[in-house]
Design a protein around this nucleic acid. Structure first.
Ligand SMILES: NC(=O)c1ccc[n+]([C@@H]2O[C@H](COP(=O)([O-])OP(=O)(O)OC[C@H]3O[C@@H](n4cnc5c(N)ncnc54)[C@H](O)[C@@H]3O)[C@@H](O)[C@H]2O)c1
Ligand SMILES: NC(=O)c1ccc[n+]([C@@H]2O[C@H](COP(=O)([O-])OP(=O)(O)OC[C@H]3O[C@@H](n4cnc5c(N)ncnc54)[C@H](O)[C@@H]3O)[C@@H](O)[C@H]2O)c1
Lengths: 211, 211
DNA sequence: ATTTTATTGTACTAAGTTTCACAAAAACTT
DNA sequence: AAGTTTTTGTGAAACTTAGTACAATAAAAT
């Protein structure tokens, strides 16, 4: 690799990997930069540039070999397989995410949920919900590093602290409170309210010119 | 306004507005660039620059007037108040979002849900779920422009088409299929699986150096 | 009235990211 | 074998966004 793996690049690589897995399962053997570009919504030149940066070569007029790309991306991105996360705040959104099928078959698993008021989930789920007092011990015992935060806005800050004190090093934050990344704990904020407001703004600005 | 409202800027403005509303409800009257910067996670200079670009002046040593800023941001961003959205795919994530309290009190309202297999929601919710055959007529009758897409991955593309054919002009897409913005329909993709993989990647790369 | 302090406003700088454009090369066609 | 087509690989250009540094100035303190 010649350069630095920047933030956007990593996201694209993760998306390439997902597409490549799907293509492989369909029996494809090679893929072109424009196929991958279409699939993840970027220009073909950017796909080529990404692979060029990672020194992943293709074949002139023959595209890229899917097995090779998959394997190499696996080495670069690391196996996320069998890694575990926990969810703090098992309300509406926390419970929905806990049941996400994309996780079951995929790269990681929800190891447990935690809540101030732990409520039993449908028995069909093997997932257990524990009181927050057990969070630190559980994370420690199971080497949990990544958490989803889905508590009410009012307790977001204290929950953030609790997660950090429990050894969590990465948080996907669904509360509207903007948490900040520190050297010890990386935050990704997802603010659905802002996303929708933004969509409205763009739609309105976009006008009704088209057919 | 002197420049163009770029993508990132709009998101910051939406966040400023949210913070200003909260500050106002707490009785504050003025705010400094560093307060806002802290709240939304950007440098104070960027806050000032944003307001400078929009010709929203503050007072040297006196900060910015909250009422004034709020009002002006309202004019720039447009009132999203009382705007309505629909949700296509009332499964786990669709139902969770339909019940999001941030919407009830906030800027918009979920007008209805749609599903191939409409299932009754808890009676406590006033929201109704209709079969997808009624989508186009409903959107037309109620001037719905924005939708949340939460159907299974396999039907994401056909659902996308259905939404566009129903006159929808903005979609917040939760399926892992990367949909593309067209002149008539703006797409914002949220891919939670990729977000978590990305977090794992960064956490692992970050190492365990800190305390 | 003068000095000190706090804070805005902005020109300039820097960094990051994507697209353009086209040469190079491999594969296919006739 | 020569020509045509397709697709990669990449340097340079373009674009977008954020950060630095500091002059300007209003308020507060002395
Ligand atoms: N559950 C999560 O936490 C989560 C997180 C991120 C992304 N997603 C994505 O969101 C989507 C929905 O996930 P889910 O977990 O809610 O699944 P789900 O199976 O619980 O819900 C899907 C719903 O869509 C309905 N549906 C099926 N075909 C339809 C069609 N053609 N038109 C309209 N409705 C249709 C189904 O009846 C069902 O109610 C998936 O694409 C998933 O990948 C889910
Ligand atoms: N529902 C949505 O679609 C949605 C969408 C985007 C963002 N959010 C945000 O996600 C968060 C959760 O939303 P929700 O709709 O699931 O709310 P919810 O009230 O259904 O769930 C919150 C859960 O957190 C638990 N909780 C309260 N205090 C806690 C604490 N100190 N520690 C641990 N758990 C605690 C509650 O018992 C409850 O189970 C909110 O911040 C909300 O703004 C929700």
């Amino acid at each position: 690799m010649r350069g630095t793996l920047n933030k956007e690049l990593v996201i694209r690589l993760l998306k390439y990997r997902r597409i490549l897995t799907q293509l492989k399962s369909l029996g494809f053997e090679k893929v072109f930069s424009n196929n991958l570009g279409d699939a993840i919504g970027v220009a073909p030149a950017l796909v080529r540039k990404d692979f060029s940066l990672l020194v992943l070569g293709g074949n002139k007029r023959g595209g890229y070999n899917i097995d090779y790309l998959s394997e190499q991306l696996g080495l670069i991105l690391g196996k996320t397989n069998e890694q575990k996360i926990i969810i703090l705040g098992m309300g509406k959104i926390g419970t929905a995410i806990a049941q996400y099928k994309g996780f079951l078959q995929g790269d990681f698993e929800v190891a447990a949920g935690f809540d101030v008021r732990p409520v039993g989930l449908p028995e069909s789920l093997s997932l257990k919900v524990y009181p927050i007092e057990e969070l630190a011990a559980f994370c420690n015992a199971n080497s949990i590093q990544v958490a989803i935060l889905a508590v009410p806005e009012e307790v977001a800050t204290e929950s953030h602290k609790l997660l950090k004190d429990s050894g969590i090093r990465g948080i996907l934050n669904f509360t509207p409170v903007e948490l900040k990344t520190t050297p010890n704990c990386i935050i990704h904020n997802i603010n659905i309210g802002v996303e929708i407001e933004n969509l409205f703004f763009q739609v309105i600005r976009n006008g009704l010119s088209g057919a």
